[in-house]
Design a protein around this nucleic acid. Structure first.
Lengths: 225, 225
DNA sequence: TTCAACAATTAACAAATTCTTAACAGGTTA
DNA sequence: TAACCTGTTAAGAATTTGTTAATTGTTGAA
């Protein structure tokens, strides 16, 4: 991995230093900021891949900074992760509304932070909106629900993920190989028919017309709009 | 920060003076009121940014005043913070229904009051109550108490925190990993079943229908509104 | 058009996983 | 000491996931 850029913003020098040290050791190129305004300025200048943002900061708090950064086209791909004191409200999660990709409670446990980051990078965030609009369905990862008009459809995990995968590629064929890889992973071995069976179950629950079979290739989620 | 206006309402002159002094020092422009009716009159006249409201007041008690003020369009943006004696019944405080944004117990710790205020202002009122309203419950962080209608349910710490976590993310799935991290922290090792058992205990106390299991993923607190 | 040959559908079943629940025990607090 | 909180364990429910096999559908070559 070549050095990705991370911008760390916190007003407490101790924490800043600690994080900087840790991230550098992980091979990141580190940029620092001490308050809200500096954060925004430096973010626009350096276009970092990741921004760690303390909620409590002078000049402009983390939530506000986050909201503002999210309007920037040039930072579309940037992962924004919010740091929040444990004592503060969980509802501080309001940060999500501001466009944060995740948040971590302080005191920061480095292992946790790093693994969270890795997870975010691995799946390339932006293709992973928590609510996916697909045809008449809203597929909500956070609620683990498919919403169809007024009806809420519950799917078990594997089915949910399969549908999510297909819907996220709407109108494109997803090959059986690809499905195996995404849903089961490289290591797990399951019989071919397993996919068909899951498709079946999904069709029963959401209706037959949305998932189309492409013989010899895979499946396709079809939807207008 | 330019001087915001704060209206302080209390019938005890000592407290009034103390608060007035403290708030002035913080740079607020202070307006005083000694009873319920005066409070309403002055609130409408000065349109303060913040109102500190004692529960016990002559003429009209704090709750009632609060309720009335909340119907005023011109005070929509105003933060209303209720002061209540620690000894008082919680159910009186339940005047959250009356539209208060937070409350503080007397004797007032100034630091706590100020930081509470700051937090409220920072994020536009609606979100840092020490009481979280979730469906039919008011979850009181200060007292580790769940209020459900007229009933007060006392939960032990771990159960309380777990419920609070779920409720603060209402309608969203909280993964088991996340729960471990938030409630126990990454270092503590507890067996998997521990979460289930705590969920069980909470369900027994608040009713079965509020916490939903998402198999293989986590738990979800469900509530309308 | 018909017929292999292959692919997907489907129901029924079996296995595996994941939760529920009660009971218990150590630790702490009042 | 009693009462309570917290975590553990283990049996068993419930649900999800995977397999199988009979059946149906599709395709293209004869």
């Amino acid at each position: 991995m070549q050095g990705k850029k991370v911008l760390i913003a916190d007003d407490e020098p101790d924490i800043l230093e600690l994080l900087a040290y840790a991230m550098e050791k992980e091979g990141y190129e580190v940029i620092l900021a001490h308050d809200g305004e500096e954060t925004i300025k430096k973010a626009l200048k350096h276009l970092p891949d990741i921004i760690l943002l303390d909620v409590m900061m002078p000049k402009k708090d983390g939530i506000e900074v986050c909201r503002q950064l999210r309007t920037e086209k040039s930072l579309e791909e940037t992962i924004i992760l919010i740091l929040t004191a444990r004592s503060e409200e969980y509802s501080e999660v309001a940060g999500f509304d501001a466009g944060a990709d995740d948040y971590v409670t302080k005191p920061v446990k480095l292992r946790s932070l790093l693994s969270r980051l890795e997870a975010l990078q691995r799946r390339g965030i932006k293709n992973n909106p928590s609510v996916l609009q697909a045809g008449p369905f809203a597929i909500d990862r956070e609620k683990y629900l498919i919403v169809h008009g007024l009806e809420e459809i519950k799917l078990p995990r594997k089915e949910f993920e399969l549908l999510y995968l297909l819907a996220s590629m709407r109108n494109k064929v997803v090959s059986r190989d690809r499905i195996f890889e995404e849903i089961w992973g490289k290591d797990v071995i399951v019989v071919d028919r397993t996919i068909d069976v899951h498709i079946r179950r999904i069709r029963i629950k959401i209706g037959e017309q949305y998932i189309q079979t492409i013989k010899g290739v895979g499946y396709k989620f079809v939807a207008e709009d």
